[in-house]
C-alpha cells in the first residue's frame, strides 16, 4: 500500500499526460492544463518549501552542536530577513526586499561566478597540455574559438572568423548532436521504466 499505491499514481498521471500529448481536443487540453498547473506546479512549489525547511533544520541542528555556529547564524539571518522584509514592505521596485536582492545577492552571486575566470586561467596554465593527438585538437579548437570571439579575429581576417564558425556549426556541433541523441534515448528509456514501475529508486527505502 505504501509503495504500490504511489507507484500506481505515478504511472497513471504519467500515462494521462502521455496520452493527452497526442490530442488537441478541448477535454485533453483541459486535463493537460489542470494536471500541469494544479498538481505539478503547486506540488513542485511545496517541494521548494520543503527544501527551505530542510535547510533551516540542518542549520539549527548545526548551531545546537556548535559546528560553524557563526556562519550558520549568518545564513539563517539571511534566510529569515528576506520573507520578513517582503512581508512588511512588499517586493516591488525600491522595496527593502529588492534592495537586498540588488545590493547583496546579485553582486555576491555574480562575484562567486567571476571567481571561475581565475580558476579557468590557472587551469589553462597548469592543465591544458598537448599530451596526445586528441589533446592537441582540443587545445587548437579552444584557441580558434578564443581568437575568433575577440577583436583579434576581426583584425586577422574575415575568413578566420568564418572558419571558426564553420568548426562550431559542423564538426563540433555533430559531436554535441550525437551526445544529445544519446541523452534523448536514455531519458526516453528512463521515463518508460518509471511509468512501467520498473524504476523505483524515487520511492526510497521502506521505513521500518
Amino acid at each position: 500500500m505504501r509503495r504500490k499505491f504511489p507507484q500506481l499514481v505515478c504511472g497513471l498521471i504519467g500515462l494521462l499526460l502521455f496520452v493527452v500529448y497526442f490530442s488537441r481536443h478541448p477535454i485533453a487540453s483541459s486535463i493537460n492544463e489542470t494536471v500541469t498547473r494544479e498538481y505539478w506546479q503547486i506540488v513542485f512549489a511545496f517541494a521548494l518549501l520543503v527544501g527551505v525547511v530542510s535547510f533551516a533544520k540542518i542549520n539549527l541542528q548545526g548551531i545546537e552542536r556548535g559546528e560553524d555556529r557563526l556562519y550558520r547564524i549568518i545564513s539563517l539571518v539571511g534566510l529569515i530577513s528576506m520573507p520578513v522584509l517582503a512581508l512588511i514592505w512588499g517586493i516591488g521596485t525600491g522595496s527593502p526586499f529588492m534592495w537586498v536582492f540588488d545590493n547583496v545577492q546579485v553582486p555576491m552571486q555574480s562575484t562567486v561566478f567571476a571567481l571561475l575566470a581565475f580558476f579557468v586561467a590557472s587551469a589553462s596554465l597548469r592543465g591544458f597540455r598537448a599530451r596526445s593527438g586528441p589533446a592537441f585538437i582540443l587545445l587548437l579548437a579552444a584557441m580558434v574559438a578564443l581568437i575568433s570571439r575577440s577583436d583579434v579575429g576581426d583584425l586577422m581576417s574575415a575568413r578566420f572568423s568564418d572558419f571558426a564558425e564553420w568548426i562550431r556549426s559542423n564538426p563540433s556541433m555533430s559531436a554535441r548532436r550525437a551526445i544529445l541523441i544519446g541523452i534523448g534515448l536514455g531519458s526516453l528509456t528512463t521515463s518508460l521504466r518509471v511509468l512501467l514501475g520498473l524504476e523505483r529508486t524515487w520511492l526510497g527505502k521502506e521505513s521500518k
Binding site: S124, F128, M143, L146
Partner: peptide
Amino acid sequence: AHLYVIVLIILGN
C-alpha cells in the same frame, strides 16, 4: 582576457 588565456596555454605547453 582571451589573449591572456592563450598566452597561459602556450606558456604551460
